[in-house]
């Protein structure tokens, strides 16, 4: 069932017309089709995931287009966080878990034995549910990612730190106190710092795992604005329990329920004319 939906979706939109529109680059206007860019950035095939003997993800298939925002929604415990953490192999930090199936990033299977997990995580950045800056200064928080990736020249590092802060729309608020502890920032600022930290290492995909779950509405709005801005350069996957948020920021939405991908398609369609009853029930607030 989920399989069918996915395939249909990809087929539908890989049409000539869609390609033309993608080339026209009018993402704000034709938001529905903007997801259908020329290139599929991530492809997930027959993905199963187990915690011990419990199956947490069941046969997931989907494709994420380059420079799009894909939202993953669903009730708590549906496997949406588990799914996003598979995409940069963060799931491996949890003992007694097992993955079956394939995830292609730019055409390479990330579970291939000869594939370096560190390399993958460099390409696929992640922003977490709770802001988690290191107990270092604002500057060092960002410089850290650059240094572990082999950058040594202090001038280049400084330049990139500033750039990243600017991109994350944080520079104006912190430029006079770059060497203060990051822990003194407000929750929303901390989260934007985490985004800046992630941007600094220049990933091509950014995963957001409920980035606004612990933030106030104003900070949330800032982050959403930022996400819309970032998609010009990055491919974004965002998990959220907030349906309005999914509707506001995403081009494509996937609905997870009990470890299965129930429906996957253009955000507009999911929210206005879902094809599955369960999606409809969730969207209209009958459960969740």
């Amino acid at each position: 069932m989920s399989n069918n939906t996915t395939k249909k979706f990809i087929n539908d939109h890989s049409t000539e017309q869609a390609k033309k529109e993608a080339i026209l680059r009018k993402p704000q206007v034709v938001s529905q089709n903007q997801s259908v860019s020329v290139k599929t950035k991530i492809r997930v095939e027959n993905l199963n995931f187990f915690y011990g003997n419990v199956k947490a993800l069941n046969n997931i298939n989907l494709g994420v287009a380059e420079n799009s925002v894909t939202a993953i929604i669903g009730p708590s415990g549906c496997g949406k966080s588990t799914f996003i953490r598979v995409l940069n192999r963060m799931n491996e930090l949890v003992p007694h878990t097992r993955v079956e199936g394939k995830v292609f990033l730019d055409g390479h299977n990330i579970f291939d034995p000869c594939c370096d997990v560190v390399e993958i995580r460099r390409k696929v950045g992640m922003v977490f549910q709770k802001p988690n800056p290191f107990a270092k200064s604002i500057y060092e928080n960002i410089a850290y990612g650059l240094r572990v990736n082999g950058l040594k020249d202090p001038n280049v590092i400084e330049e990139k730190v500033i750039q990243s802060l600017e991109k994350a729309a944080l520079l104006s608020e912190v430029k006079d106190r770059l060497h203060d502890s990051a822990l003194r920032l407000s929750g929303g600022q901390q989260q934007r710092l985490c985004i800046a930290r992630c941007l600094a290492v220049e990933p091509s995909v950014i995963l957001f795992d409920e980035p606004c779950a612990s933030l106030d509405p104003i900070s949330t709005a800032k982050i959403e604005e930022l996400i819309l801005d970032l998609k010009k350069q990055y491919t974004i996957v965002i998990v959220t329990h907030n349906m309005q948020q999914a509707a506001r920021v995403s081009d494509v939405t996937g609905f997870f329920l009990m470890g299965e991908l129930i429906e996957f398609g253009p955000t507009e369609k999911i929210f206005t004319a879902p094809s599955d009853k369960r999606t409809e029930a969730y969207i209209t607030g009958r459960f969740g």
Partner: peptide, 11 residues
């Protein structure tokens, strides 16, 4: 979460 953040940066 600090370990995760660092690993996610490609450390």
């Amino acid at each position: 979460s600090h370990r995760e953040a660092s690993l996610a940066l490609g450390a």
